[in-house]
Amino acid sequence: MTLDTRADSRSLEALIADAARGDHACFAEVYERTHRHLFGVAVRILGQGQAAEDVLQEAYVSIWKSAGSYRSEVGGQTIQAMTWLIAIVRNKALDALRARTRRRENQLPESGDVDEDDVQSVGNPAPSAMHLLEQASQALHIDGCMSALDGSYRQSLALAYYQGLSHTEVAAQMGAPLGSVKAWIRRGLEKLKGCLAAQGVVA
């Protein structure tokens, strides 16, 4: 009972530090606080289903094993625990997505054959990723700064970030040349860096 109250008032950073020392109750609390958000990140990239759940499972096992490698400060900058957790889930989701794409490329194309995995990505059209970028920009107070970027720059960045699409896939989805998409995304990232720094969010 007292344990729960103690865990409730503790920061995510402190819970991860205790998980690193082998405290499984603290790890369970980390899961309780973060799994819905992290599952959202995986679902966004892989679609709702077994693949996203597998990624979530692998991610938390990895978080448990590598909790000791979390650093709250790197290069003089504070690293939020959530940042660290999101990066782990996103990397695993991207790996799973690329593996799925490779598997599909190796299969013989059969006309009219719809892969179950496709259903969700078809259900996530481009405006949705763009909408998420707009919402995030507003929440971070960088919408004014980011709106200086041309719409196609922002859209390509949004597709790459929220859908986990590769350069080629973004180009195909936007019907734009690959070279342009690469340049748009690079420019979009540079702008994002500048906007966040100006807002004092991340250096």
């Binding site: 690293i79 939020q80 959530m82 940042t83 996103r90 966040l196």
Partner: peptide, 8 residues
């Protein structure tokens, strides 16, 4: 990771 994590 800090920058792009904010977008989540």
């Amino acid at each position: 990771e800090s920058r792009l994590g904010q977008l989540a």
